[in-house]
């Protein structure tokens, strides 16, 4: 399982790509693997505000359903609508085609609490 070093991670198994005051969010390779074949994805609309720790969407496989928790607080600037139409990309390319949202941050300092790739791997090793 891969967890690229250029990304940050949360305990809810999301990855975050930081680009200044904006971030891109998706779910990790570990998360997609434990869900199994993803069949459905629900995301907020562009312009919606999301709050760190609160659910912002839902991802479903045939036999499981999981809330997506916002890793940061901010405003949704872009939504990957193509992913909603073909959520199988979450299994095939979790860090590429399967990005979910771009978010304009309210407070950059929030990013300090996120895990590095190494921390995340240690975390999932412990969780398993």
């Amino acid at each position: 399982m891969e967890h690229p070093e250029n990304l940050k991670y949360t305990k809810e198994h999301e990855w975050i790509l930081i680009e200044g005051e904006s971030v891109t969010v998706g779910i990790t390779d570990y998360a997609q693997d434990s869900l199994g074949d993803v069949v459905y994805l629900e995301l907020p609309d562009e312009g919606d505000t999301i709050t760190s720790g609160e659910p912002f969407g839902v991802v479903e496989s045939v036999k499981a359903v999981s809330d997506l928790f916002a890793p940061v607080t901010g405003t949704v600037s872009e939504v990957n609508d193509a992913l909603v139409d073909g959520p199988e990309d979450i299994n095939d390319d979790p860090y590429g085609e399967a990005w979910m949202l771009k978010i304009d941050l309210d407070d950059v300092a929030e990013l300090d609490g996120l895990m590095s790739s190494a921390d995340y791997e240690a975390y999932i090793a412990e969780e398993a």
């Binding site: 459905y40 479903e60 496989s61 045939v62 036999k63 499981a64 359903v65």
Partner: peptide
């Protein structure tokens, strides 16, 4: 679409 149902959700 069983994820709506009791045995999963």
């Amino acid at each position: 679409l069983a994820t709506r149902e009791q045995h999963i959700r």
